[in-house]
Amino acid sequence: MNLTVFLPALLKGALVTLEATLLSAAVALVVSVVVGLVRLSRFRLLRGAALVYVEIFRGTSALVQLFYFFFVLPIFGIDLSPMAAGVIALGLNFGSYGSEVVRAAVLNVPRGQHEAAVALNYPPGLAMRRIIFPQALAAMLPPFGNLLIDLLKATSLLSLITIGDLTFAGKSLVQSQGHVTAIYTLVLVFYFVMALMLGRLMQAAERRVPGATAGGGR
């Protein structure tokens, strides 16, 4: 067993895993906010379209979606790099879960806050931006933290569409070097440490956004 060979290869893979996690998280975040707010829109057609998207992506498997983006889209002339296909697939998958987080958090802002905004003559968009959304943010962070760690773990699926992430690096090492137990144990430990680090990061973020609902009335 040769750690000087294993560790650099795994570290390189871990960087790709981190990159994929952050890119997918960025896509998922944008999708979550946009779709979550559209789900609350006044326009039925928009609401319906958002609901269909959420049900499709929550109702099917992440791996199936990933294969769809990787194998099926090229048939229609949409040729994405493996990383792009993976990031979009995971981003849309986690965006569907995240949009429900956003929706629930916005719905949980007390009614009195909406009423105060009306009484101060805020137009709906401005009320959302200045009053409602900032308060909902505090409620979104803990579930977003959980989703981020789930997303980190889900990037291991990218190894199945030829992306050289941590899982892929582990598999290649096993094929070339043997040492199955040691290498897969190391891979697990790498993921675990990354998950712990992301968890800490999110906790720090939560501390910086004050729980905004205290004293807000109903």
Binding site: P110, A116, A119, L120, Y122, R130, P134, Q135, A212, G216
Partner: peptide
Amino acid sequence: IGMVFQHFNLFPHMSALQNIMDGPVHV
């Protein structure tokens, strides 16, 4: 028209000053 509510409904994420300034500035 302006209104004052039974449960105040101040914006909890803003200071007293910001609560009063936000409407005049943004609306």
